[in-house]
């Protein structure tokens, strides 16, 4: 009897540590990206997302641990011809036109997409003859995307691709990504928007302070991060409130308390019972920062 071979992960960090001088950017990270999945690295700024991508792309060397791309060295040409990357860059030469940039990058790959196809996928056909310096911010971002996909990559890196875009442009970009990846293409996405990871990813790893603190499907992650923020003017002591079941963290701001709870209703009920004079009650969804608090159990 034969077993199917265990598929090699497309991209892998094994026990990776990365220091910049005395700064620990990654403290022992294990990640496996499987073929055909959209994998999101979610975390706040400075969490180690971009460092992880830099390691996987061979731009950085790990201080300790092992980095593999397609089972080999990320710096090899064999790996590079199968990868496309949209990185956080401020620009490409301003005097070259959109079509020229794409024609040049296409020549680096053995089986690139036709330039016309890349223009179409990134919605750039109408500005193909425009110099990069004359593009709008959104059009520039779309050219960076087109440069990532011109090589027809098996593995696509998107490093915070929608930072600085408005909501409509962000949604449009997600649609372009979905159109391009189709089936079988692997994507590594980094973002600090939970909504973005949710919209695109099959699997999410939450990273904070250089450590992976949670991993799972978007539904699993959302479940664990579905905290509520409660604000109220009350005479109750923070210590007492912190001890209530379901409360993650409490902070006093003047006469008011700001607290984070897993579910709002039982906590609000408890608060009103103990302090009938409570006023200015507000309940809202928790942001990503709050979600991290919930995930780490408020240990920060």
């Amino acid at each position: 009897m034969t077993y199917p071979p265990t598929p090699t992960p497309v991209a892998e960090l094994r026990g990776v540590r990365k220091d910049y001088g005395s700064v620990r950017a990654l403290r022992g990270v294990d990640l496996q990206v499987r073929a055909g999945e959209v994998f999101a690295l979610l975390g706040p700024n400075g969490a180690g997302k971009t460092t992880s991508v830099g390691l996987l792309l061979g731009l950085l060397r790990p201080t300790a641990g092992e980095v593999r791309l397609f089972g080999g060295d990320p710096r090899s040409t064999e790996a590079k011809v199968r990868v496309g990357a949209m990185l956080q860059i401020s620009g490409v030469p301003a005097t070259l036109r959109v079509r020229e940039h794409l024609e040049l990058f296409a020549s680096y790959y053995p089986a690139p997409l036709p330039v016309a196809r890349a223009l179409e996928l990134a919605d750039l056909t109408e500005v193909a003859e425009r110099p990069y310096g004359h593009l709008s911010g959104g059009q520039k971002q779309r050219l960076h995307f087109a440069l990532a996909l011109i090589g027809d990559p098996d593995l696509l890196f998107l490093d915070e691709p929608t930072t600085g875009l408005d909501v409509a442009a962000r949604r449009a970009f997600w649609q372009q990504v979905r159109d391009f990846i189709g089936s079988g293409r692997t994507v590594v996405l980094t973002t600090h928007y939970l909504e973005e990871a949710d919209a695109l990813a099959d699997r999410i790893a939450v990273i904070d302070h250089g450590t992976v603190i949670a991993e799972g499907t978007p539904a699993e992650i959302k479940e664990r991060t579905a905290g509520r923020r409660i604000h109220a003017v009350t005479r109750l002591e923070p210590e007492l409130v912190r001890a209530l079941p379901g409360v993650v963290s409490v902070e006093r701001n003047g006469a008011a308390l700001d607290l984070l709870a897993r579910r709002a209703e039982p906590v609000v009920q408890e608060l009103l019972q103990r302090d009938p004079s409570l006023s200015d009650l507000e309940v809202g969804g928790a942001g990503l920062e709050d979600a991290f608090l919930a995930l780490t159990g408020g240990s920060r």
Binding site: L57, V83, A85, L87, G91, G151
Partner: peptide
């Protein structure tokens, strides 16, 4: 741009 080229083949 240099970084993009270093990542490319």
């Amino acid at each position: 741009w240099m970084m993009l080229k270093r990542v490319s083949p």
